[in-house]
Design a protein around this nucleic acid. Structure first.
Lengths: 337, 337
DNA sequence: CTGAAAGCGCTTACAG
DNA sequence: CTGAAAGCGCTTACAG
């Protein structure tokens, strides 16, 4: 691989000048630039990344940390979609992304290594279950970072989130407006922000209509298909006529349980999910669900992080993206009266 | 962040010695090692990655390239699972992974930058649709690389694959043994290795039983759920009593089409998929499918690549992992006669 | 077993 | 607009 030095020699200029050319420094004469560029192209020269980041003090690499709590749910396509949003935005800004799937076995070592070895300029954390330990490490690394999904208890960090509460309210409100009277819910983990917020939205939707909350109609899941399946079976004993499920994977599990119990959806039980994964529209029946712009969350998080890195400022970035209720067959809104 | 130099000063030794200690060089006295380590720990020192890789000539970073052809199918959880296998193995060997999802817009730039800037020590390519261009770039970068899934036409590269042909043969053979007489197939793209190999296995299973191949019973898909759905609808006109579908996502689409057509699975039409995604066991009815050890492919590819990097040798690594037919309800083997 | 020194390939004030 | 020089934080022969 050619080096800066060789390019300089072949172009008959100094290394400084070559450096300026490849970094688009305006203080270079057009003639010189042209001369240098031609040999850069001829040799297919690429600056050495390590040398560059050592000298410049930054790497144009972003770290993506997916904590181990999330890994469990990794058959959920959400993460692929999120990664796509992040990756595309990085490419657009000439950044690269390093990926760390936290394995519980390596989590501690990983955090230290990643955060303190100077490799990355900033960190995106998929924050479904971010421990205090990680958060502390993040803070004292001095790196810029941003969470995808707010932290359940700390508000002093940058994040991109969606309107989880409002989305849930809208979904439950919609079921109530269809005349459903026993609206149950399968929540996410009530230690996670989306779990908490969607649960809160459910409660608020009931309360705002003067309805009381029946604890028997609330079951806590963990966002996995299996927990939706078992959650639904548990709910069935209390005869709900509708269920708001806090994500699509669990909703799919719920549909499976209903099918096994020979209950019709939406005639006997209406179901609404959350996420609008590609799977939702193809479920039987097609799943009414609250769409969150997952790919866009990834893109916005990345964009924001890059801004923060390149234009350091005080102040927190807390961005909340809107959701949208996608009405399909499973909620009964399309039933002929 | 502390530097080697500071550690050296505080430990009262030279930088060389500190370097030896943190690199586990045996030529250090136990006393010195202990002294140095205590200050390393006290300051929570981490060697600067860029400096290290500039000086040492390697980075302990592996690149994972997912070509753009694959991105389309990215709602398929296969890639998440693959990434998990890769990531875990990297952690176990103290490597990190950089991720590039090829966006068609950036593909060309990406390849050059990644491959020639010295950042990574080797490359894993998820090779569903790897272009000649990428392959050429890979070769003349001089980097070690390995494909996950063999290349459809070139055999002069390292790869990890599964027994696609044998797996397909077994699946189709199984259907024939159940007494199915019009066994159709929805193939993957016939430009991709798994598409070709599973199609070949289908043909061979028929031929080896002296059966003729009916072109009307063969439809080409693209591994997406949608293509399985439309493929099945197309097949229905020719009244198959069984369908071997080349992956689970398409099989799910096929089941959806059968449900819409009010055909019973497996009574009217038996269905067998390929992959054994978590979804397969939870389909209605549970899907008989050929399991491929996806996570293990990722792990083996990573392991092999690291071996190649650390112990360069001539010779190609071509590893083929076994598959296993998972018999569930959809193939009819569990029907009462 | 330990240290002094050169070098990895860049960037970036500083002069001119 | 251009160049000489210092420096980024490590590793690695080479001596001793």
């Amino acid at each position: 691989m050619p080096t800066l030095e060789e390019i300089a020699e072949l172009s008959d200029v100094s290394r400084s000048t070559v450096s300026r050319v490849i970094n688009d420094d305006p203080h270079v004469s057009p003639a010189t630039r042209k001369k240098v560029m031609s040999v850069v192209r001829r040799l297919n020269y690429q600056p050495h990344a390590a040398a560059r980041s050592l000298a410049a003090g930054h790497s144009r690499i972003l770290g993506l940390i997916v904590p181990s709590g999330v890994t469990i749910t990794f058959d959920d396509p959400m993460y692929s979609i999120l990664v796509r949003g992040i990756s595309a935005t990085c490419m657009g800004h000439n950044y690269s992304v390093m990926l760390w799937l936290a394995d519980p076995d390596y989590e501690r070592r990983m955090i230290n290594q990643i955060l303190r070895n100077g490799l990355i300029d900033g960190v995106i954390v998929s924050s479904l279950s971010i421990s205090e330990e990680i958060l502390d490490a993040l803070f004292d690394s001095g790196l810029s970072f941003i969470l995808v999904g707010r932290h359940p208890s700390r508000d002093d960090v940058n994040y991109v989130d969606v309107e989880n509460r409002r989305g849930a309210q809208e979904a439950v409100g919609h079921l109530l407006r269809q005349g459903r009277e026993r609206v149950a819910t399968i929540t996410g983990p009530l230690t996670s922000a989306p779990g908490i917020d969607r649960h809160t939205g459910y409660i608020e939707a009931l309360r705002s209509r003067g309805l009381s909350v029946d604890e028997h109609l609330i079951v806590e899941g963990d966002f996995s298909e299996a927990s939706g399946y078992y959650g639904m079976r548990q709910l069935l004993a209390h005869e709900p006529d509708a269920v708001f499920v806090a994500n699509d994977m669990m909703a799919l599990g719920g549909l499976r349980a209903l099918r096994e119990a020979d209950l019709r959806v939406p005639e006997d039980v209406a179901v609404v999910g959350y996420d609008d994964l590609p799977l939702a529209a193809r479920a039987t029946p097609p799943l009414t669900t609250v769409r969150q712009p997952i790919q866009r969350m990834g893109a916005v998080a990345t964009q924001t992080l890059i801004d923060i890195i390149e234009h350091p400022t005080a102040g927190l970035h807390r961005i909340v993206l809107p959701t949208e209720l996608m009405v399909r067959r499973s909620c009964g809104a399309m039933l002929q009266p």
